[in-house]
Nucleic acid binder design. Sequence first.
DNA 1: AAGGGGACCAACCGCTTCAAA
DNA 2: GTTTGAAGCGGTTGGTCCCCT
Length: 306
Amino acid sequence: MPLRQETPAAALARENTRQHQEGEDRRKSRRAGMGRSPCCEKAHTNKGAWTKEEDQRLIAYIKAHGEGCWRSLPKAAGLLRCGKSCRLRWMNYLRPDLKRGNFTDDDDELIIKLHALLGNKWSLIAGQLPGRTDNEIKNYWNTHIKRKLLSRGIDPQTHRPLSGGASAAAAAASGLTTSNTAGFPSPPAPVPRPARPAIAIPPNVMFAAPSEDGQSSSGGSSDAPRCPDLNLDLDLSVGPPCSPPKTPAAAASTPTSQQQQQQQQRPTTICLCYHLGVRNGEACSCKTTSPAGFRFLRPLEEGQYI
DNA sequence: AAGGGGACCAACCGCTTCAAA
DNA sequence: GTTTGAAGCGGTTGGTCCCCT
């Protein structure tokens, strides 16, 4: 699967070369076509590619003071960058625990399964792949895995078979998706904003393929594109189970106050996220912690799927 | 050898979420 | 309960590299 292997040394060399070639002029003009004014109030913040010196300053500062308070970091570190830019650079490129290099086939499959479960929640997916960043996985998805799935006849958004053969593949490739017909819950569509997933997956979670009729089919036939092999035992819930997800059509409509009331009246269940080490709000919206140490899961919102 | 086009990926923007005031 | 600002996230852009013709 590797298309372009790049060693760290090569990457550095490439980076240095690139930095050399990039002058102030290009830096200034680079974003000329893009939207609103920068997030930072400073007119004199640098943009574009980071220089080696900037990288070193950022690394040195974070080594000395740790991460945090990105807003004030640039000034403290002597960088003419906005905090967001510093954070991004650190998270996506400079962090020492980053793993560079190609994704393995196992990584591919894991990403595909996680995407089937979580949708475009790249940060959550990245959380299951140590050393990988959300940006990296997002790029990798868009450049490799999408194509891989399309070649298998699978819609990368819905993870379901494309109907209509080549024409459907072409449609998917052009950003169109075919309708779902198999009744398997699809991951949240990207637009509008994907639904917040309610469950976070630890790295050791095993996936078992549910078949169309709800039976496990982990050893089943294999040519057909497989739905995500999710074997999440959710029997931990206390009290009656949550209401089943509504249809996508229902999900599309904005909740009325009556719906919101009903939502509030739904029973609570134990939030797995708490035990999985997911930060508050990262995989669910629950906030409270019971005296017994459990956080309670806010039931799925309209249109949310697990 | 040169040019074109696709692939790759760093970095940006805009939006949402969250917590403090 | 409301406001505000920082942090974080996802979508998108555009420069560079590489392969093919």
